[in-house]
Amino acid sequence: MAVDRVWRASVEPLLGDLDGEQGGCPAPFFEREQKMNQTTARELAFFGRITAGFTHEIKNILAIIKESSGLMEDLLSLTKDEPFPHWERFSHRVEVIKQQVQRGVELATHLNRFAHSPDEPVSPIDLNDLTDQLVRLSERFARLKEVGLTRSGSNASIVLVTSPVALQMTVFLLLESCWNQMPAGSAMELRAEWRERHPCLLVRMTVPVDDLGAVKQHIATSEGFTVARQSAHELGGQMLDDIPDGFALLFTETRVDQQAG
């Protein structure tokens, strides 16, 4: 299976000679670990494949709704000079359908990309694309906590070579640990940038209370943040909590695709 091949190509060089001992651990440990990772990769790829297939179908359905509402709009425009008591109301509803189709298309597109994340266990990931993708997929969760979530774009190309699934999960965990502790009416902004010559994801927070430090303290001591910190560490990153208005995920040990920059 292609996933196995890609996984082997990306992970075996990191593990070295599987017949020998690695870091004091006997070879069977690595073999078992590798098999578990292969199984996980296969399961994730399966999950992603099915989800990606469905998002494709959803887009087909949205395409039909879009063309149908477009046709209704065309027909309405033909009757504009004829007596039609509900013309305005019809026209407004058609516009609502078009807007919701557009919303659905954007969500399906992002979900489709997300579902393709496990296609390759390790691949280049543009942090600007990642922030866009994650904010689109996560803003609903933040909204339910009455916290606004946005991203600010950066012109810098920042490309990491790592596990797309693990990276997205880590950033989601970080964001989730923030909105879970932030008071209603707060706002968060996610931004990719270079910091201390390392790729960095910055979470900036605005809260409707005076003591941002106390909110940050709640976040930094929460279980979710601890898991995010651990997950970041496994990716070769470190969580910085000494940023004045938020947190930063600094990738100090993660491979950077220099050619992309």
Binding site: A63, I64, E67, S68, G70, L71, D74, L78
Partner: peptide
């Protein structure tokens, strides 16, 4: 997708 292509065709003919 028959509904898609027939609706699109109708819009183009219009």
């Amino acid at each position: 997708e028959e509904e898609f292509v027939s609706t699109l065709a109708e819009r183009l003919r219009l």
